[in-house]
Amino acid sequence: MASFLSRVDNNPSSVFIHHSKIEEHIPMHCHDKHQMSYVEGGVAFLNTKKKSYFFPARHFIWIPAGREHNVTSRTSVKMVHNIYFPKTLIPTNHKLQKHGGIFPVTNLLMEMIYYTENWNGDINKLQKKSNYEFMLALKNIVLDVAETPLPVVLPTTENEILRPILKYIHQNIEKPLNLEGIAYEFGQSSRTLSRLFQKNMEMSFLQYVKLTRIIKSMELLLQSELSITQIAFSCGYNSLSAFSYAFQQIVHRSPINFRKQNR
Rank of each mutant, 00 (worst) to 15 (best):
N124S: 09
W119I: 15
I250N: 02
H94E: 12
I161W: 03
Y168N: 13
Y237W: 00
G66M: 10
V153W: 00
H59G: 05
S52H: 02
L109Q: 11
T88F: 08
S14E: 04
H31A: 02
I26Q: 09
H59W: 01
N10L: 13
Q248I: 01
R74P: 13
T156H: 05
Q188P: 03
G100E: 11
Y53W: 13
M36L: 15
F134W: 08
T116E: 08
K167T: 13
G41Y: 06
I113C: 09
N140R: 13
F233M: 03
P104N: 10
D9R: 08
T192R: 13
R67Q: 11
S217Y: 01
I256W: 09
S3T: 13
V153G: 00
F233W: 03
M112Q: 12
L179E: 06
K216M: 04
F258W: 08
L109G: 08
W119M: 14
H69I: 01
T116H: 10
I214E: 04
E180S: 14
L193D: 05
R58W: 02
K95S: 11
I83Y: 09
K139N: 11
L5E: 05
R74N: 15
K210S: 10
M135T: 05
N159Q: 12
I63R: 07
N257K: 15
K98N: 14
S76Y: 11
S189A: 05
L154A: 04
Y168P: 07
V209H: 07
K51S: 06
I90F: 13
Y38M: 09
P164I: 05
F243S: 00
Q97T: 12
P104V: 07
R259H: 06
V43K: 12
S227P: 01
Y115R: 14
H29F: 06
L136E: 04
L143T: 03
S241T: 07
F197K: 11
S189F: 00
F247G: 03
I182D: 02
E158M: 10
Y168H: 15
F45A: 06
R58A: 07
H69A: 04
Y208Q: 03
A146N: 09
L162C: 06
C235Q: 02
C235N: 11
N47G: 01
L226F: 05
A183Q: 07
T88A: 14
R74W: 07
N11G: 05
Q188N: 09
Q249C: 01
Y208L: 03
V43G: 12
K50V: 02
L96F: 10
I228E: 02
H25R: 15
A57T: 14
T148E: 14
F233A: 02
K87H: 09
M79C: 14
M201Q: 06
A232Q: 00
S52D: 01
I228N: 03
V209A: 07
